[in-house]
Protein backbone atom coordinates (compact mmCIF):
# COMPACT_ATOMS: atom_id res chain seq x y z
CA UNK A 1 0.00 0.00 0.00
CA UNK A 2 1.40 3.37 -1.03
CA UNK A 3 1.78 6.22 1.42
CA UNK A 4 2.90 9.83 1.32
CA UNK A 5 6.54 10.05 2.44
CA UNK A 6 7.92 13.43 3.53
CA UNK A 7 11.54 14.39 2.86
CA UNK A 8 11.84 17.66 4.82
CA UNK A 9 15.47 18.19 3.75
CA UNK A 10 14.25 18.75 0.19
CA UNK A 11 11.45 21.23 1.01
CA UNK A 12 12.03 24.70 -0.42
CA UNK A 13 9.03 26.22 1.38
CA UNK A 14 7.06 27.12 -1.77
CA UNK A 15 3.75 26.10 -0.12
CA UNK A 16 2.32 24.80 -3.40
CA UNK A 17 1.25 21.65 -1.53
CA UNK A 18 -0.97 23.79 0.73
CA UNK A 19 -2.70 25.32 -2.28
CA UNK A 20 -3.15 21.94 -3.95
CA UNK A 21 -4.46 20.39 -0.74
CA UNK A 22 -7.02 23.15 -0.18
CA UNK A 23 -8.16 22.81 -3.79
CA UNK A 24 -8.47 19.04 -3.46
CA UNK A 25 -10.70 19.56 -0.41
CA UNK A 26 -12.92 22.21 -1.98
CA UNK A 27 -16.35 21.70 -3.52
CA UNK A 28 -15.36 22.75 -7.01
CA UNK A 29 -11.95 21.00 -7.11
CA UNK A 30 -10.42 23.77 -9.20
CA UNK A 31 -8.22 26.52 -7.83
CA UNK A 32 -9.97 29.45 -9.50
CA UNK A 33 -13.44 28.41 -8.36
CA UNK A 34 -12.19 27.30 -4.92
CA UNK A 35 -11.02 30.81 -3.95
CA UNK A 36 -14.62 32.04 -4.47
CA UNK A 37 -16.14 29.40 -2.21
CA UNK A 38 -17.67 30.05 1.21
CA UNK A 39 -16.46 28.65 3.51
CA UNK A 40 -13.02 28.95 2.00
CA UNK A 41 -11.33 25.55 1.69
CA UNK A 42 -8.18 25.31 3.79
CA UNK A 43 -5.04 23.18 3.50
CA UNK A 44 -4.54 20.07 5.60
CA UNK A 45 -0.79 20.07 5.09
CA UNK A 46 1.07 22.93 6.76
CA UNK A 47 4.45 24.29 5.73
CA UNK A 48 5.95 25.89 8.82
CA UNK A 49 9.24 27.74 9.15
CA UNK A 50 11.91 25.47 10.61
CA UNK A 51 14.81 26.41 12.85
CA UNK A 52 16.66 28.11 9.97
CA UNK A 53 13.56 29.44 8.21
CA UNK A 54 13.62 26.46 5.89
CA UNK A 55 10.28 24.95 4.91
CA UNK A 56 8.90 22.06 6.90
CA UNK A 57 5.91 20.23 5.40
CA UNK A 58 3.84 18.94 8.32
CA UNK A 59 0.97 16.54 7.81
CA UNK A 60 -0.89 13.81 9.71
CA UNK A 61 1.22 10.66 10.24
CA UNK A 62 -1.88 8.47 10.67
CA UNK A 63 -0.28 7.02 13.83
CA UNK A 64 -1.17 3.52 15.03
CA UNK A 65 -2.42 3.58 17.74
CA UNK A 66 -3.55 7.15 17.12
CA UNK A 67 -3.42 9.43 20.19
CA UNK A 68 -6.10 11.70 18.70
CA UNK A 69 -8.45 8.75 18.30
CA UNK A 70 -7.94 7.72 21.92
CA UNK A 71 -8.47 11.27 23.18
CA UNK A 72 -11.56 12.06 21.09
CA UNK A 73 -14.44 12.82 23.43
CA UNK A 74 -17.11 12.30 20.83
CA UNK A 75 -15.89 9.07 19.24
CA UNK A 76 -15.55 10.97 15.97
CA UNK A 77 -12.05 9.77 15.05
CA UNK A 78 -11.72 6.35 13.48
CA UNK A 79 -9.38 4.33 11.29
CA UNK A 80 -10.57 3.55 7.79
CA UNK A 81 -10.53 -0.20 7.27
CA UNK A 82 -7.72 -1.45 5.09
CA UNK A 83 -6.05 1.85 4.28
CA UNK A 84 -4.77 2.69 7.78
CA UNK A 85 -5.99 6.25 7.29
CA UNK A 86 -7.14 8.04 10.45
CA UNK A 87 -10.33 9.93 9.65
CA UNK A 88 -12.54 12.46 11.46
CA UNK A 89 -16.29 12.07 11.07
CA UNK A 90 -17.43 15.69 10.56
CA UNK A 91 -20.93 14.93 11.80
CA UNK A 92 -19.76 13.49 15.12
CA UNK A 93 -16.96 16.00 15.79
CA UNK A 94 -17.90 18.46 18.57
CA UNK A 95 -14.94 20.80 17.98
CA UNK A 96 -13.67 20.32 21.56
CA UNK A 97 -9.99 20.40 20.51
CA UNK A 98 -9.07 17.37 22.64
CA UNK A 99 -7.28 16.05 19.55
CA UNK A 100 -5.15 19.24 19.41
CA UNK A 101 -3.94 18.34 22.89
CA UNK A 102 -3.25 14.76 21.83
CA UNK A 103 -1.49 15.28 18.49
CA UNK A 104 2.31 15.26 19.00
CA UNK A 105 2.85 16.89 15.58
CA UNK A 106 0.35 19.76 15.72
CA UNK A 107 -1.36 18.95 12.41
CA UNK A 108 -5.04 19.37 13.32
CA UNK A 109 -6.87 22.64 12.60
CA UNK A 110 -10.34 23.87 13.60
CA UNK A 111 -12.58 25.72 11.20
CA UNK A 112 -15.72 25.44 9.12
CA UNK A 113 -14.98 23.15 6.21
CA UNK A 114 -16.65 22.90 2.79
CA UNK A 115 -16.99 19.14 3.35
CA UNK A 116 -18.37 19.44 6.92
CA UNK A 117 -21.63 20.69 8.45
CA UNK A 118 -22.56 24.26 7.52
CA UNK A 119 -21.97 26.97 10.09
CA UNK A 120 -19.96 24.81 12.52
CA UNK A 121 -16.22 24.69 13.08
CA UNK A 122 -14.86 21.15 13.23
CA UNK A 123 -11.48 19.45 13.52
CA UNK A 124 -9.87 19.06 10.10
CA UNK A 125 -6.77 17.12 9.09
CA UNK A 126 -5.18 15.12 6.26
CA UNK A 127 -7.34 12.26 4.95
CA UNK A 128 -4.65 10.85 2.64
CA UNK A 129 -6.70 12.28 -0.24
CA UNK A 130 -8.92 9.22 0.00
CA UNK A 131 -11.43 10.71 -2.47
CA UNK A 132 -8.69 11.26 -5.08
CA UNK A 133 -7.07 7.88 -4.47
CA UNK A 134 -10.47 6.21 -4.96
CA UNK A 135 -10.56 7.83 -8.42
CA UNK A 136 -7.11 6.49 -9.23
CA UNK A 137 -5.29 9.79 -8.62
CA UNK A 138 -2.38 10.31 -6.25
CA UNK A 139 -2.55 12.69 -3.23
CA UNK A 140 -2.68 16.32 -4.37
CA UNK A 141 0.33 17.47 -2.30
CA UNK A 142 2.57 14.84 -3.90
CA UNK A 143 1.31 15.58 -7.40
CA UNK A 144 2.19 19.26 -7.10
CA UNK A 145 5.55 19.01 -5.27
CA UNK A 146 8.39 19.97 -7.63
CA UNK A 147 11.22 19.60 -5.09
CA UNK A 148 10.78 15.91 -4.35
CA UNK A 149 9.94 16.69 -0.73
CA UNK A 150 6.71 14.69 -0.96
CA UNK A 151 6.65 11.29 -2.62
CA UNK A 152 4.01 8.58 -2.87
CA UNK A 153 5.52 5.15 -2.53
CA UNK A 154 5.44 1.80 -0.81
CA UNK A 155 6.57 2.41 2.78
CA UNK A 156 8.78 -0.71 2.87
CA UNK A 157 10.63 0.37 -0.27
CA UNK A 158 11.07 3.90 1.07
CA UNK A 159 12.45 2.60 4.36
CA UNK A 160 14.89 0.29 2.55
CA UNK A 161 16.14 3.12 0.36
CA UNK A 162 16.58 5.42 3.34
CA UNK A 163 18.50 2.75 5.26
CA UNK A 164 20.73 2.19 2.22
CA UNK A 165 21.40 5.92 1.86
CA UNK A 166 22.36 6.20 5.52
CA UNK A 167 24.67 3.17 5.39
CA UNK A 168 26.29 4.47 2.21
CA UNK A 169 26.94 7.85 3.83
CA UNK A 170 28.91 6.03 6.55
CA UNK A 171 31.59 4.98 4.05
CA UNK A 172 34.60 7.28 4.16
CA UNK A 173 34.65 8.12 0.47
CA UNK A 174 30.88 8.51 0.09
CA UNK A 175 28.92 11.70 -0.38
CA UNK A 176 26.11 12.74 1.93
CA UNK A 177 22.63 11.58 0.83
CA UNK A 178 21.91 13.60 -2.26
CA UNK A 179 19.97 16.85 -1.99
CA UNK A 180 19.40 18.67 -5.27
CA UNK A 181 22.07 21.38 -5.76
CA UNK A 182 19.52 24.19 -5.91
CA UNK A 183 17.88 23.12 -2.63
CA UNK A 184 21.25 22.84 -0.92
CA UNK A 185 22.20 26.34 -2.09
CA UNK A 186 18.91 27.80 -0.87
CA UNK A 187 19.38 26.22 2.55
CA UNK A 188 22.94 27.48 2.83
CA UNK A 189 21.78 31.02 2.02
CA UNK A 190 18.99 30.88 4.62
CA UNK A 191 21.29 29.50 7.32
CA UNK A 192 23.95 32.14 6.58
CA UNK A 193 21.32 34.89 6.77
CA UNK A 194 20.31 33.74 10.24
CA UNK A 195 23.94 33.33 11.34
CA UNK A 196 24.73 36.87 10.14
CA UNK A 197 21.69 38.43 11.79
CA UNK A 198 22.86 36.78 15.01
CA UNK A 199 19.63 35.12 16.13
Amino acid sequence: MKQVVVHPERCVGCMQCMLACATAHSRSLTLFAAVQETPQPKPRIHVGAGRFNEGFPNRCRHCDPAPCQMACLAGAIYRRDGAGTVMINPDRCINCASCAMACPYGVIRFHEDPLGPAGHAIAVKCDNCSARVAKGQIPACVEICKAGALTYEEMDAAMRRKTRDVSRSMSTDADQPAIPAGVALLKTIKQSEIALSGS
Binding site: R51, F56, G106
Partner: peptide, 19 residues
Protein backbone atom coordinates in the same frame (compact mmCIF):
# COMPACT_ATOMS: atom_id res chain seq x y z
CA UNK B 1 17.50 22.43 22.78
CA UNK B 2 15.47 25.14 21.07
CA UNK B 3 15.80 28.49 22.89
CA UNK B 4 12.64 28.91 25.07
CA UNK B 5 11.96 32.24 23.31
CA UNK B 6 11.50 30.27 20.07
CA UNK B 7 9.39 27.63 21.83
CA UNK B 8 6.96 30.27 23.13
CA UNK B 9 6.83 32.28 19.86
CA UNK B 10 3.65 32.21 17.73
CA UNK B 11 5.43 30.56 14.77
CA UNK B 12 6.64 27.55 16.76
CA UNK B 13 6.01 24.24 14.99
CA UNK B 14 7.22 20.65 15.10
CA UNK B 15 9.83 21.23 12.39
CA UNK B 16 11.86 23.45 14.72
CA UNK B 17 12.53 20.52 17.03
CA UNK B 18 14.36 18.50 14.42
CA UNK B 19 17.83 20.02 14.83
Amino acid sequence: RLPPERLVAPGFNFGQLLY
